[in-house]
Amino acid sequence: MKKLFKGFLVATLLGSMLLAGCGGEKKADTKQEKTKVAFVYIGSAKDGGWSESHDNGRKYLLEKVPNVETTVVESVPAGADSERVINQLAGQGNKIIFTTSFGFMDPTLNVAKKYPDIVFMHASGYKTDKNMGNYFGRIYEARYLTGMVAGKETKSNVIGYVAAFPIPEVVRGINAFTLGVKAVNPNATVKVIWTNTWYDPAKEKQAGLSLIDSGADIITQHQDTMGAQQAAQERGKYSIGYNLDMGKVLPKTVLTSAIWNWGPFYKQLVENVQKGTWKTGAYWGSMKDGVVDIAPYGSMVQEDTKKVVDSAKAQLKDGKLIVFKGPIKDQKGNVKVAAGETMADKDLLSFDWFVEGVEGTVKN
C-alpha cells in the first residue's frame, strides 16, 4: 500500500574484520553478523500487486547486499494483529523492520517507541520518530502517464477507476491519472468506485465489472491485486495495471502499468543502517530517482500514443512537466490551482478534493 517523502544518504557496507596473530600465535577470527531485516505485508507476497512489489525489492536486497538475512510475515491485517506481529519481529533480533501498508502506521510507531535501537520504516504513512521513518514514491507521476495512455486509447470516453479508500494518497493518484487523461482527451471522464479494502480480489473484480457495465472501456485501480484487470480481460476490455507490470500476466488487456521499483531503495537504506549513517525522515522518490515508472506498452497500444507519452515521460524526468501545476479546477469548475502555480507537497499530502473530469465523490 501505499505513500511520501525525501531521500536518504548513500552508503557502503560494513566490512568483515579478520584478527590474525603472527609467528607462533594462535589465529583468531570473528565472524561478521548478518543484519536481520523483517518485512510485514498486508497481503500475499505473490498477490500480483502491492505486496509482491515489495517482496521483489526484498529479493533484490538479498542479491545485492551481503550479510543480510530477511524474514517475511504475509497477510497481516491492520490494527492489533499488525502490532502484535511487529512486536514479535522486534523481539527476534531484527535490526530493521519494514511495514508496508498504510494501516500499519500507528502500530509501527507504538512498537518503535519500545525498541529505540531498532530502525522501523513505514511505507505510505506520514508519521516519524527518532527511530522510525516513512517512505513512498511519487507514483502520481506514473499515474499521469498511464492516464494519457488511457485517454488516447479509449473509444467510449469513459474510464473506470477501482479505488480502495478515500485517503490523500489514493485521491492524489486518481487526480493525477485524470489530469493525464484530460491532457490528451478533454472529452473523457473517469468514474470512481470505492471498495473500502486494500486486498479483496473478488470485490475488486466486481467493482471493475460494475464500471464496465456503466460504460467504461478501460479499467484501472488503486488496489493491491489485479482483480479489476481480470474483470477487464473477462469482458474483452482494456486496462491499466498498478504496482507491477501486469501485462506479463494479462497481456490481452493491459495497455501499460504504473509500477514500483523498491529494490535500490531497500539496498541503500540497509547499507545506511549498517554504516551507521541512517537518519529518520520521510522519503518520497520520483520517476527521476527510478522508484516509480511505467511498464512496457502492450502490443495493442498505438504508435502515436507511445510517442506522446514517451515525450511527457522525458519532460517529467527533466522537470519541464509538473503534474500538479495550474490551472487546475475541481469538479465544480472552481479554480483550485491558479495558472503558473504549483501545488506544494504539503497540499499533495492532504488532497481531499477531485479534479475536473472525475465522476464520484471523495467521501464514499
Rank of each mutant, 00 (worst) to 15 (best):
K6S: 15
L250K: 06
K127D: 02
A150V: 01
K267S: 06
M121L: 13
G93V: 07
F98T: 08
T71F: 05
P296F: 05
K64G: 01
V10T: 13
A228H: 08
K152P: 00
D245A: 04
N67H: 13
K191E: 10
K267Q: 03
L109I: 14
T277P: 03
G340A: 04
D289C: 07
T100Y: 09
V37C: 02
V85P: 15
L348C: 03
G160D: 12
Y238W: 07
I212W: 01
Q88A: 15
D47E: 01
K336F: 03
D129R: 06
S350M: 00
I219T: 02
Q88R: 11
V190H: 04
N94K: 00
T128P: 02
V184W: 08
Y242I: 10
K182C: 01
K313F: 05
N243P: 03
L321R: 14
S350H: 00
W278G: 00
K130S: 10
P168N: 00
T256A: 00
Q331R: 11
A232E: 13
M1T: 14
K182E: 11
T99K: 10
Q221K: 05
V337L: 05
V68Y: 04
D81T: 13
I86F: 07
L19T: 15
K363A: 14
V190A: 08
S124F: 11
G333P: 10
D310N: 14
G125H: 09
K306H: 01
K59I: 01
I159L: 09
A80W: 07
V40K: 10
D117Y: 08
C22G: 13
G236W: 05
G133W: 01
P66T: 06
D289T: 01
F102H: 09
A123M: 07
K127N: 04
A232C: 02
V85L: 08
L316Y: 08
P116S: 13
E271M: 06
Q268G: 11
M300F: 04
P201R: 01
K191R: 14
I139M: 13
N196E: 15
K155F: 03
E359P: 00
P327N: 14
Y238A: 14
S299N: 09
